[in-house]
Amino acid sequence: MALIEINHLGKSFGTLEVLKDTNFHVDQGEVVCLIGSSGSGKSTLLRCVNLLETPDSGEILYKGENILTSKMNINTYRTKVGMVFQSFNLFNNMSVLDNCIIGQVKVLKKNKNVAHENAVKYLNKVGMGNFLHANPTQLSGGQKQRVAIARALAMDSEVLLFDEPTSALDPEMVNEVLNVMRDLANEGLTMIIVTHEMNFAKEVANRVVFMDRGIILEEGEAKEFFNNPKEERTKEFLGMIRK
């Protein structure tokens, strides 16, 4: 059974149909990269997965349970599906450490000491253990993004969603974030990644999904997808990227 399964998902913003009857699934331990040009609906699909956008139609099954209709609390569900944003969205009124603690204490109702230990563990994991008491505004983009990953991990998420995690970074900082993500992938964490980093997708993803104008046009095993794209549109897109 897929960990997350999306069936016939539809989403419009006003008259603009962003997602059309989209079907998508992620298995436990799988790394899926969503690629496609701007406005293809990949970010909207990702935001629908943790309900930052509410779909107009269709269903989202988490471990077989439809989270749109079930009695499962949305906030409880969100703790299981962590999100890493393009613009980091770290809490600017808190230190790096508190960013990783607050959710554990206020949402998961963990003991403060346990939460502290857990936060430090994950901050060390992303290489930010030296910045526990720094404020997010003092950090570089790459550092912020690593803290954001630690914040999501500290919630003991089962899936991490990445919405263009490196798009807002200076080129020299992209790798420090991709390295962290690569480590997580190797440890078997389930991840859905919207990205423009094709080399990263090729290397890390188990499966690549290509979206175009609100539909999933093509998907496949990563190497196969990049080496032998089937659809004309996919070839065109990959050609553009390679130039």
Binding site: N75, F91, I102, V107, A152, M155
Partner: peptide, 10 residues
């Protein structure tokens, strides 16, 4: 984004 960050951790 601050609000979205907060909602994303539940």
């Amino acid at each position: 984004g601050q609000n979205e960050g907060a909602r994303s951790i539940g």
